[in-house]
Design a protein around this nucleic acid. Structure first.
Lengths: 73, 73
DNA sequence: ACATCATGTTAGATATATTTGACATTAAGT
DNA sequence: ACTTAATGTCAAATATATCTAACATGATGT
């Protein structure tokens, strides 16, 4: 599972990891870990992140049936 | 956060909780808990469930900005 | 009445997400 | 050179998701 969080932060006036974390109720370390695909966030967190950028979940997180890796880094 | 998992199971030839669990790699107890909104599944699990029904995540799980409850049961 | 199947539920264990606190690095501003 | 802001990373703690094993209930079939 890969995601566009880092890109979307840049598109959103260079929003910082700490700022995003504040807006969704997470620490900056957690944002960093999610951006790097170190683990799969809860669905609730995924919705909150997508909401900050005014996007749908599928626009932010990309999932493929057999895909258990992070190859789209 | 509410969801349509139970409904979608019925629409899918009365698929059983155990059968759905088998298909997505979860136990039937976990499926039951998710259906009842007892907790927010991981994003990965949400994608796998939606995929079984050929739906998008937003078709299966409904989230509202301020919504921390399960009132749409 | 008995057996079976699907579901609800619960307690205790394990796995994973998330936090907290700390330290390192790199880029930018003074 | 110094400071500050943003990020990477890590270890240890806490919270939450998920599993396992068990027992209960209602519906269905024999």
């Amino acid at each position: 599972m890969s995601n566009e969080v880092k890109l979307l932060r840049f598109l959103a006036q260079d929003m910082t990891q700490a700022e995003l974390g504040k807006r969704v109720g997470l620490t900056r370390q957690t944002i960093a870990a999610i951006e790097q695909g170190r683990y799969s966030p809860s669905l609730d967190v995924a919705f909150r992140i997508a909401h900050v950028f005014g996007k749908g979940i599928d626009d932010v997180f990309h999932w493929q049936p057999g895909g258990d890796d992070r190859s789209a880094d």
